[in-house]
Design a protein around this nucleic acid. Structure first.
Lengths: 110, 110
DNA sequence: TATAAATACCTAATTCTCTTATGTATCTTG
DNA sequence: CAAGATACATAAGAGAATTAGGTATTTATA
């Protein structure tokens, strides 16, 4: 088991960045993709994921598109132009955060 | 302003690591030191710091020592042997967390 | 072919961590 | 001597995640 504590606050950064890279994704797809990329280390829970997606949409950072697949409806999310900006900003913040943490923890910056 | 969101969950890692490096420290000293090391980017609030220190102590990871300075009493914190173990584990977790995040965010691992 | 597992969405109650707001008291400096 | 720094502490509230629950369709399997 790895620190789930450290993951707190990273969700929006992850969502914005994934959508920046992959164009459009739907909720379930995101959970699967993150699980694969992290080798099962990060498993997004739906109780965190969906409210977070909804919030980003409400903030105008994401837009949605419903696609019928058989009788089921998938909800695809993609970045708005504002979302693209925020995605970049969040990524930069993450980099800065890591550098600052390494400084405090006394680790090499390399 | 930088993402305070990302800092969530990092406090205990910071505390354990600082004490591992510096032997013993008291609360106020920790806030000052973190502020300096981070160039003011991370400012620990007392409302987070003290409860966290108390909790780590209650968990047996820290031990305390009261030192009179003039008429005031400083409370120095240092690691127990259990705390030393946990400190190392937390540091490793942080490194792992960063690697995993870089993977998900599609960043170079270098 | 029934049923379990996977796909796909969602929300509510609770928990955890931190922020904000106070409170107390001593020491130093202008 | 007052303001700011030093030094501790807790309580109320906010914010983000976990846990737990719900609905429904599709696919795999026993």
């Amino acid at each position: 088991m790895h620190s789930k504590e450290l993951l707190k606050g990273t969700l929006k950064t992850i969502l914005l960045r994934l959508l920046a890279e992959r164009g459009r994704m739907y909720g379930y797809e995101i959970t699967q993709h993150v699980s694969e990329l992290s080798g099962g280390k990060i498993v997004l829970t739906e109780g965190a994921l969906y409210p977070s997606l909804h919030k980003l949409e409400a903030q105008g950072l994401l837009k949605t598109e419903k696609v019928k697949v058989g009788r089921r409806v998938r909800k695809y999310y993609s970045l708005t132009s504002e979302g693209t900006k925020t995605s970049k900003a969040r990524l930069a913040e993450f980099e800065d955060f890591v550098l600052t943490m390494r400084m405090i923890l006394g680790l090499k910056t390399t």
